[in-house]
Amino acid sequence: MPLACLAAPTPEPADAKALVASLKRPAPARTPFAEARFMKVLDKPLVVSGELAWLGGDKLERRVDKPAKEVSTIADGEVTQEREGRKPRTFSLKRAPQLRILLDSFVALLGGDASRLDDAFDVKLGRDADRWALTLAPRDPSLAKQIVSIQVYGSGNQPRCMRMNEKDGDTTIDMLGDLAGHMVAEPELADVIAQCGGAM
């Protein structure tokens, strides 16, 4: 009997935990990103690129270099948005559920904190050889009303992409790390997904 137990494959939750732990990076962790937003109000996707940084704790910085310089900082429950030539804008994190989800998932992943991730999301892991996809569905009902899920694509211990699916059908995909350089000016959703490693 003990032998049979050992021989069984690692159950999924434990697997997800191990994966999240392997994603841990020491703060501050920075990565280039390129983002494409597919929105119903727009005829074509919006593309921006820059650098995402986890500054430790619940502090995130999102720096956009293209098409225009803009820095957004999340710290102490407040979001501050600074854009060249404009007055900085500050609003509460509570008013931006997208950001809260981004913060929760990002910090938990980079901190390798599987239990925090589990607190905020229903976590599902899919694997295909070296590639993997984590699907995070927010547990908070009010957040779930706006964000259906976040998908993190990666291989080995490298996350490659983050995708956010909104309730209204709008989708945002961030290419991370080296992949960020591969974003085209007017991407198609299917192409971007394929570049990230495909849907699982």
Binding site: L46, V47, A68, V79, P97
Partner: peptide, 20 residues
Amino acid sequence: QQRLDDLSSPAASLLKRLLP
């Protein structure tokens, strides 16, 4: 132009519904 910038920023979900 500012709204377009807003849409690519973290504040997008705040403004999206108001936009039209």
